[in-house]
Amino acid sequence: MAWLGHFNYWVVVILMMIGFYAVIARGNMVKKIMGLNLFQTSVFIMFISAGKIIGGSTPVLREGITVYSNPLPHVLILTAIVVGVATTAVGLALAVRILEAYGTIEEDELVDPPDQPADESHPGMPAGKGDTAA
């Protein structure tokens, strides 16, 4: 049962593929962001798994403990989690703005005639910011 020894990494691969599939295959933007989140989280698990030392304690200096887990991946992933949260926040904020501007967040329903200016009725007029975007 050697493959069970790499249980964490199997989970990482499976989660990553589920997330990646959702990013590619789903048309709904919120689902895409969830997929992206799953994709990132699987990488976090990979880092944390690599930092674990069998028999190692939490990396806090104590009496009578000689083997500690590696704290560096934890610190790195703390940073990466912040990045992930920020990405999700920006992505969701954009989804809200897209909903306001288009009335939908389904990719198939977003229609903009390619290469047509959204303000064709006023050619030559400086298009103000408020003309099309909410």
């Binding site: 897209i98 200016p117 099309t132």
Partner: peptide, 27 residues
């Protein structure tokens, strides 16, 4: 996403998806 055209939002969202996947690959 500050672009005046509403398509800027879509462009930004697509860049966000692709850019994040790219950055995660680097990670």
């Amino acid at each position: 996403a500050h672009g005046w055209d509403r398509r800027a939002l879509l462009a930004s969202f697509r860049y966000l998806i692709m850019g994040t996947v790219g950055a995660t690959f680097v990670l």
